[in-house]
Design a binder for these strands. Structure first.
Length: 570
RNA sequence: UGCCCGGUCGUUCAAUUGGUAGGACAACGGAUUUUGGUUCCGUCUAUCGAGGUUCAAAUCCUCGCCGGGCAGCCA
């Protein structure tokens, strides 16, 4: 395969499973319909921030182009200036790049084709295939018929082509008020497919466009722009979501009447994920009502949010590739995404120790004031990551969950009289539990065995647990934000008429821990960089960090067999 | 009750196009382990229904049933 694509994605270039899109493309190639290569496009409307659902479309379109040695254009579908803004263009470009795709010089816009679209519209008018309608929006709606009844012809449907052409040019010239006239395709008001009932091609809209400013006061509709843009660009396969299936006859009709390059539209099912919402409207509500901090809230499935949370783009790409593409409605389990997050992070994330819910440990037989440095492996999955020195001392922090005064049978961490290993350090044995007047455990007293330095016992005795720890005297203090799924149910928007989908919000989706202790090496980590806190999960540095205090986001927890045992009442 | 699309393990995608229903995740069990992580091994579970064609049907046909989309001068 000759790879001429601009998007070499090194880590996931293997083709993955077959699907009906690739089958169709293979067939078209065999039939000689792709002599200039396979061309796809990702066509967002710049009116919102990209989310993980868009990522599927991006992966499908760029992925297929790459796999077939073709190319994928980025084309902004900017035909409605009242909704679109440059800010969204910029953020989309940033997000797609972050995901790992590249479109070379082909940053394209539907608005690039406004003049051509206008000329083609004139051509259709001349052929008697389009006409200017003077009816109001209400009248057009009223005469469109219903799902079960045909529509009625507009009184202007059969006006002379010359008259329509004149009117259309005057529409462009600004002689009419917004909404006063439209250009309509002349197809069939009795068509069972409502999209074919003389669809509107142009409306008059006095709004400043983010690229063409006030050059135009008429704007093409989606159907009369998208397929034409595809054709102009030589897009061989225009892959879109299922709701456009009913539009395909119109897509094909315009191309056929114009006799231009026949792009082929194929529809596939959008990707949904359990416990998350991706509709623009709903994401907007979450942000505007302050239910999340902003568009980049790490709990949101926006690409900005996922990036801030530390989700590796590789995981998103891998996820959508493995999920595949089909035509049936789907709701993929979020655990699959989490699996690929862990799978990637496990290979690349440097390990550190951090204590989230600290409990003080004093090693009674360790010399007061002494600090020694012990060697830790940075990444057991990647020897080239090397080692680091970790300071150890008489007073340490361990995780509160790692000690139980009266442990159940299957708990094999620290308990009175029990010996455990401190990772990379020593075996310690709990000798005493110190409580305050309310009975709360405030400190654990232990002894250590100097012969077990590094964590090995020369006499071969075993311990059942290895704990992470941080030396108190050199610890970094940090805030850590733990995220849980934003909703408590798999389908948050699946609610009865008298229910509010927002009632499904998880009240505990964010837990902020103000006093966490980290090993000092973590001070070197920069904003956005990720790591593993051993035994806990993957974390990354949040932009809220200051030189005074680090802030970490938990990207995803490690799989936790103990929590399952605990739940079962172990 | 118009038109279009879809229905395969809990989830999702496959099945060389009519020839032993398979993978991944999840779940469950076990081995290894200086992360109750990783890795490894194993187990469990599915063709919406009824007819028909055929030596043979997830696949083709018919009729049902269920789910989704469509009546913007949105995309």
């Amino acid at each position: 395969m000759t790879a001429t694509t601009d998007s070499p994605v090194a880590d996931d270039t293997d083709d993955g499973p077959n699907d009906f899109l690739r089958d169709a493309i293979n067939t078209d190639m065999a039939d000689g319909r792709t002599s200039n290569g396979v061309v796809t496009r990702f066509p967002p409307e710049p009116n919102a921030y990209l989310h993980v659902g868009h990522a599927k479309a991006i992966c499908v379109n760029f992925g297929i182009a790459e796999q077939f040695g073709g190319r994928c254009n980025l084309r902004f579908d900017d035909t409605n200036p009242v909704r679109e803004e440059q800010e969204y263009v910029d953020s989309m470009i940033e997000d797609i790049r972050w995901l790992g795709f590249d479109w070379g010089e082909r940053e394209l816009y539907a608005s690039d084709y406004f003049e051509q679209l206008f000329d083609w519209a004139c051509e259709l008018i001349n052929k008697g295939l389009a006409y200017v309608d003077d009816q109001s929006a209400d009248q057009i709606r009223a005469t469109r018929g219903s799902l079960t009844e045909p529509g009625q012809n507009s009184p202007h449907r059969d006006r002379a082509a010359e008259e329509s052409l004149d009117l259309f040019k005057r529409m462009r010239a600004g002689e009419f008020a917004d909404g006063e006239k439209v250009l309509r395709a002349k197809i069939d008001m009795a068509a069972p497919n409502v999209n074919l009932r003389d669809p509107v091609m142009y409306r008059i809209l006095r709004a400043t466009h983010h690229r063409t400013a006030d050059e135009w006061c008429i704007y093409p509709m989606y159907d009369w722009a998208h397929g034409q843009g595809d054709s102009i660009e030589g897009v061989t396969h225009s892959l879109c979501t299922l709701e456009f299936e009913d539009h395909r006859p119109l897509y094909d009709w315009y191309i056929e009447q114009l006799g231009i390059f026949p792009s082929r539209q194929i529809e596939y099912a959008r990707g949904n994920i359990t416990y998350t919402v991706t509709s623009k409207r709903r994401l907007l509500q979450l942000v505007e009502k302050g239910l999340v901090s902003n568009w980049d809230d790490p709990r949101l499935p926006t690409l900005q949010g996922m990036r801030r949370r530390g989700v590796p783009p590789e995981a998103i790409r891998r996820f959508w590739r493995e999920v595949g593409v089909a035509k049936r409605e789907n709701n993929v389990e979020v655990s699959l995404l989490e699996y690929y997050m862990r799978d990637h992070l496990n290979k690349v994330a440097p390990r550190f120790m951090g204590v989230l819910n600290p409990l003080k440990v004093v090693i009674e037989n360790y010399p007061e004031g002494d600090v020694e440095h012990l060697e830790g492996v940075n990444n057991p999955e990647d020897p080239s990551a090397g080692t680091r020195q970790i300071p150890f001392g008489r007073e340490l922090w361990i995780e509160r969950d790692d000690f139980m005064e009266d442990p159940p049978k299957k708990f094999f961490r620290l308990a009175p009289g029990r010996e455990v290993r401190l990772r990379y350090a020593y075996f310690i044995t709990c000798t005493q539990v110190v409580k305050d007047e309310s009975g709360q455990i405030v400190e654990i007293r232990c002894t250590y065995d100097p012969a077990t330095k590094g964590g090995d016992s020369p006499d071969g005795r075993k311990v059942k647990a290895t704990l992470h720890w941080v030396a108190a005297s050199t610890a970094l203090q940090a805030q850590v934000r733990l995220y849980d799924r934003l909703f408590t149910v798999e389908n948050p928007t699946d609610v009865a008429d008298d229910e509010d989908w927002l009632d499904n919000l998880n009240p505990d989706s964010l837990q902020t821990l103000e006093t966490c202790y980290l090993e000092p090496a973590l001070a070197e980590l920069k904003v956005g960089e990720g790591c593993q806190f051993e035994r806990l999960g993957y974390f990354c540095v949040d932009p809220d960090s200051t030189s005074q205090r680090l802030v970490f986001n938990r990207t995803v927890a490690l799989r936790d067999a103990w929590s399952k045992v605990k739940k079962k009442g172990g």
